[in-house]
Structure formats: structure tokens, C-alpha cells
Design a binder for these strands. Structure first.
Length: 599
RNA sequence: GGUUCCGUAGCUCAGUUGGAUUAGAGCAACGCCCUUCUAAGGCGUGGGUCUUGGGUUCGAGCCCCAACGGAAUCACCA
């Protein structure tokens, strides 16, 4: 912010004047003063001791004297504690700062221009054989928030999704539907398409296991039984037919995938996530082969005797990696190379971010090297935004044991909870229409879910307790939303009472330390956004919003704004509240969390 | 076993590029505060050898090394 820059250049001047040394502004550390000490900003003078050749206290005192003399409009006073120079900033500076924030509608956000870097973010990446679960929810929310944050830092952003729509697992659902489905459709059953298909995937597994057990009872070894079970044989045959473009299999595949996509779209819409461009593995997996063959010709890869194609990564400290099987079919890595090829053809990508769970760290390490070898500019420094697993109190989520938390169920439960919560509380939502009440419940329920997931450092595994569900008190989305709604209420009532938002804040307003603290926190917002972008870390924005709102709540508790007798003070507090509201709305928006006008 | 990540209050988590005698929130427990712009709130009490042991320096929860504990991965699965 401007105040800091003023001080930093003045400090550089001070050191030049006092000790005759030129010093780089970046080496000057200015930080917020701890609450226990008087002052607002603190200069750490330890780094200058070698230059001043004096005791920390004396050095700090001299610099303080210089600042107070040279920039009295900014530095009103100072005190020295050991090697810490605490500066008291003038009220006028704070008022100026707040006015600046007020004027800037897009405070903290940088706009992207035509020549801004183009960042592509891949997230979600579902399989089309089962509905989305809690792990996908974390992925989607992180990906979406990250996209917003990158855009806020002045990048052009393309959100993309790679759908895993082919392979043996898809054939399993198809086969089970043919055998046990009796022609069931989402329309005929009223079941959401992705769930319907998921049910048949489960049905396949159930019948398959029965067959394996039967064979084993007849004395067949387990390994053999797994291969020889009629269902598995049929599924494999179906995959071959699919690869050979069998019209019937393809038609069924298209029909069932269509159901799944309709289901996914509903879930995505409920979560508030979207994509600019969707890729399908059925369309990209052949491209990968081509690219690999290209690499083979250029001598980047090599072929083994059996005909399989490999990359030698021993020079990078890794192993050899298979890229094409002996029969010429592709593996996972091949598909990702193919997808990269298409993406680069479609967009002039400067940076690629993959939002994928940390179980694939090794995969992306390899992919980065391979893409680099193949000549993709962004390959070397592609970002694998790696996030931890969501764990349940009794261990991991396992679909086989039925311990997955379904995304749709979870969203519905959260909205339901929010609705009950608001009805239980003092007569809230009684003066609003049924429609509006439902909308608020949706916003609050999703806010609780999103914030709960996004406030945790993405790298860490996190624990989710579905029984206790998610709290609405304390460090939660609803607490932040609630405070925002209260701020909006203040501004509404002020307007009704004929107290419009002042154009400028009177310079004579007396500021309390709490108010200054709030202005200081507000001014920090652009740095937080920038840091979130540099570190690919949405959680720091979430925690910032909470800190800000908590601080504001204390302020709110102590003061009355509408009944304030001193007009100057009231004007200042209205502007301060409005700006807290603006920054909270912006910050929550970056996370993809809505804030309601009323709750 | 190799590689990578993690280890902070009973529980869930923060802790900005190393900064200040006393390491922060929330939940849970206990005690106050609704004639007050929305009590989904505020105030207070108790709760910690920041896994352990070394090192780097004016100064370490943060950086380096080692140990211990946990997770992921190390497939012609995706």
C-alpha cells in the first residue's frame, strides 16, 4: 500500500543520510505492529546494524527521528523496543487509504488484457461410471477457486475438464444394464442419470463376485476365477467391440454417457462450477499414440524387443516408463500426452495447472518431463496442484464398503440443515417469501460446505465428519455470510434513515485503534490475493475473510453506527463497514462462495 | 526398501518471505451478556516440552541434518 511505500523509501533515504549507505528497498522489512505494543507499522532494524555500527536501540531511535522529521504527514510518532521501531501512522493517512479502497470498485483484483499469460486449469476429471463423491467435491471447489484466483491476478484463464469416458469400467455398467436393467432409464425410474449408471456398475460387481465365488467353490484358483468369470469375459469382449466401433455398443455407450452427463451437469450447477472447454478421453487417447510415435522417430523414446515403447528417465533419477503396450494400445500416460497435444492445438497455453489428487504426484512428475522432451513450452513448469484426500472418521472412503459420501446427497443435506437452522433460530426468515427462504438456505448450505473444504490447506489430508455435518458457528462460511448480511442491513437502514454513503470521509474523524486495525486489514487484501495466486493456495483467502469478519464483529459489538451522534465518526464507520462488506464479498467470490443480502 | 508429503490444545484447523517476555482461532467444558443497526453474535476461565534430538544466527513452529510416527506412490490400472 501507499503508506508502506512512502515509509520504505523514506527509510532508504534515512540510511543514506545517516550512515552513507545505499540500500535496496526490498531488504527493508516493514510489518504490522503486534497488538501489545503502541504503533501500527514496525521496522525491524536488525539487518541495518552492520551498516550503522550502533546498538539496535540507537539505530532505531535515529531512523525514527529522521522519519518523524521528514514525513510528518505519515509518521506521527514512534517508539523503540529493542531492535524494533514502532511507527504511529497519522489518522489522515488511514482516512486517505480507506477512501482509496472505497473508490476502487475492483479493489484487489487485476484485470487480464489481451497479452496476459494464458493459464489453463484442469479439474474435476470424473469417470462416467459412477456419480461424484466427496473427493470430487474437494477437487471441483479447489479447481474453481484456483481459476478465480488466477484470473484475479491478471491471467487469462481457461477452465477445462477431461472426462474419462472409455475403458473396461464403462463397459461393466453397460453390460450390467443390458442384463439386469429391463430397459430402465432416468425418466422411467426417476433416478438421476449418473446414479442410475452407478447402480449398474455396483450391480456388475455384485454379480461378478458371485460368479468368482462359484468358480472358486468348484476348485478354481482365485486369479483364474477372476479372469474366467463369464461377466468379465463379456465386458472385455464389449471393450473390443467398442474399440472397433461396433454400432450397437457405441449407441448404448452414447446413450448411457448422455445420462451421466446430464447428472453431472446438475451436480456441477449445484456446486456452482463450470468449464470453458471439455475434453473426452475417447477423443484424445488416439492422439497420444501419434505423439508418442513422433517422439520415437525423434529418438526421444525407444522400442523394446516385444514392440512396446518406453521413455528412459533414468537420467532424471526416475525409472523407465511405459508409453505404448506391445499390442500398440495406450496407457494412462499416453492419453495425457494426447490431451496435452489437443489443448496446445486449441489454445496458446503459457501455463498448465492440473488439479489432481496427491496419489498421482509421481505421474505428474513424469508427465512434466515427457511433455518437456516432446517440446511443449509449458511442460517443464506445469503445475500439479496436488491436494490431499478427504478422510472419514472411520477411515478412508471406499466405494466397495459403502463408505463414500455422495456429492448430491451431501449438498442436499447441507441445504436442508441450513433451512432447519434458520427456522429454529429466532423468527428468522419469517418475513421473506418461500422462494427467498429456499434460496438463502441454498446459499448458506453451500457456503458452509465450500468454506469447510477450502479453508483447509489443500496439500493436507482432511477429515470430514458427516454425522456431525458441518458447523454453522465459529470459523465457518455461514458466520462470514451472516456478518456480510448484517453489514448490508446497516447500509439499508442508513439509506432509509436518510444517511447516504458520504463521498469523502471528513478528515476530522477521530479513529480508534480497532478501526485503524480494520483499515489495515482491508489494505492487506491485494497482497493476500497475490499470495494466493503465487502459492496456488485458496485457503489463505478463506482464513483472511474469517479474520477480517471476526475483527469486524468485535468492532460492531462495541459501536453503534446508526445512532452515532458525531456525524464525522458515523460517516467514517459507514464507509468502513461498506468496505469490509465489499472486500468480504470479493474474497468469498474468489472462493466461489455466494454471500446473501439477508439471512 | 526407494521417492514425495504431513506431524501445532481433547477434536478440527490457522500461523504470510525466520521476528518481539505470554504460539493463535473454532468445536467441546464452565461462567457472564438479548428494551441494543440480525444472539448464526460478544466477553471471560481452563486447556501446549509446536513428535524427538542436534545444527545454522542477534532470533526457529517456520531453514538444514538425523530419528520416530502417519499418508501417498513405486503396474503392460485409470
Amino acid at each position: 500500500m501507499e503508506i508502506e511505500n512512502n515509509i520504505i523509501s523514506a527509510v532508504a533515504n534515512a540510511i543514506k543520510a545517516l550512515y552513507g549507505h545505499d540500500i535496496a528497498p526490498e531488504t527493508i522489512q516493514l510489518q504490522k505492529t503486534k497488538k501489545e505494543f503502541a504503533g501500527h507499522l514496525t521496522l525491524v532494524v536488525f539487518p541495518f546494524l552492520k551498516i550503522s555500527r550502533k546498538k539496535p536501540e540507537d539505530t532505531a531511535q535515529e531512523i525514527g527521528d529522521y522519519l518523524k522529521k521528514e514525513i510528518p504527514s505519515v509518521v506521527a510518532d514512534f517508539n523503540v523496543v529493542k531492535g524494533f521501531l514502532n511507527l504511529v501512522i497519522s489518522p489522515a493517512s488511514w482516512i486517505g487509504l480507506l477512501s482509496g479502497i472505497q473508490r476502487d470498485e475492483k479493489f484487489g483484483l487485476a484485470a487480464a488484457g489481451e497479452h496476459s499469460p494464458l493459464v489453463m486449469i484442469e479439474y474435476s476429471s470424473p469417470n462416467t461410471n459412477k456419480p461424484l463423491h466427496l473427493g470430487h467435491v474437494r477437487n471441483n471447489l479447489l479447481g474453481c477457486a484456483l481459476a478465480n484466483i488466477m484470473a484475479a491476478n491478471g491471467n487469462r484463464v481457461v477452465k477445462t475438464n477431461i472426462v474419462n469416458d472409455r475403458g473396461i469400467h464403462i463397459c461393466k455398467s453397460m453390460l450390467a444394464w443390458l442384463k439386469y436393467g429391463n430397459g430402465a432409464t432416468p425418466e422411467s425410474t426417476g433416478i438421476k442419470g449418473d446414479h442410475l449408471v452407478g447402480d449398474y456398475y455396483v450391480a456388475f460387481d455384485k454379480h461378478y463376485k458371485e460368479q468368482v465365488k462359484e468358480l472358486m467353490d468348484k476348485g478354481m484358483p482365485e486369479e483364474e476365477a477372476k479372469n474366467e468369470a463369464p461377466l468379465m469375459k463379456e465386458a472385455r469382449e464389449m471393450l473390443v467391440k467398442w474399440e472397433h466401433n461396433d454400432p450397437e455398443v457405441r449407441a448404448l455407450w452414447r446413450k448411457m454417457n448422455g445420462w451421466v452427463y446430464a447428472g453431472f451437469d446438475e451436480t456441477y450447477k449445484a456446486l456452482g462450477v463450470s468449464f470453458d472447454k471439455i475434453y473426452y478421453e475417447s477423443e484424445t487417447y488416439l492422439e497420444g499414440k501419434e505423439k508418442v510415435m513422433e517422439g520415437l522417430e525423434k529418438g526421444i523414446f525407444f522400442r523394446k524387443e516385444d514392440g512396446s515403447v518406453w521413455a528412459d528417465l533414468t537420467a532424471e533419477g526416475l525409472d523407465e516408463k511405459l508409453l505404448l503396450r506391445a499390442d500398440g494400445t495406450s496407457v494412462y500416460m499416453t492419453q495425457d500426452i494426447g490431451t496435452a497435444k489437443l489443448r496446445f492445438r486449441d489454445y496458446p497455453i503459457n501455463k498448465m495447472i492440473y488439479v489432481v489428487g496427491n496419489e498421482q504426484n509421481y505421474h505428474f512428475q513424469v508427465l512434466s518431463i515427457l511433455l518437456d522432451k516432446l517440446g511443449f513450452e509449458w511442460g517443464k513448469d506445469l503445475v500439479h496442484f496436488s491436494y490431499g484426500m478427504v478422510e472419514l472418521p472411520n477411515g478412508k472412503m471406499k466405494s466397495r464398503e459403502g463408505t463414500v459420501v455422495d456429492a448430491d446427497d451431501l449438498i442436499a443435506a447441507m441445504i436442508d440443515n441450513a433451512r432447519k437452522m434458520s427456522e429454529d433460530k429466532i423468527n428468522k426468515l419469517t418475513d421473506v417469501s418461500e422462494e427467498e427462504a429456499a434460496e438463502i438456505a441454498r446459499i448458506v448450505g453451500l457456503g458452509a460446505l465450500k468454506y469447510f473444504i477450502l479453508k483447509v490447506d489443500a496439500r493436507k489430508n482432511m477429515l470430514f465428519n458427516p454425522e456431525e455435518s458441518i458447523d454453522f458457528n465459529g470459523n465457518t462460511g455461514p458466520f462470514i455470510q451472516y456478518t456480510y448480511a448484517r453489514i448490508r442491513s446497516i447500509l439499508r437502514k442508513a439509506a432509509e434513515a436518510g444517511m447516504p454513503m458520504p463521498e469523502t470521509i471528513p478528515a476530522t474523524a477521530m479513529l480508534s485503534e480497532k478501526e485503524i486495525g480494520l483499515v489495515q486489514m482491508l489494505a492487506d487484501f491485494p497482497n493476500v490475493v497475490k499470495q494466493a495466486g503465487n502459492d496456488y493456495n485458496p485457503s489463505c483467502i478463506a482464513n483472511y475473510c474469517y479474520d477480517l469478519v471476526k475483527e469486524y464483529n468485535q468492532f460492531y459489538h462495541d459501536f453503534s453506527i446508526l445512532h452515532e451522534e458525531d456525524a464525522d465518526k458515523r460517516a467514517f464507520r459507514l464507509v468502513l463497514s461498506a468496505n469490509v462488506g465489499k472486500v468480504v464479498r470479493t474474497g468469498m467470490g474468489l472462493l466461489g462462495i455466494e454471500v446473501p443480502e439477508r439471512m
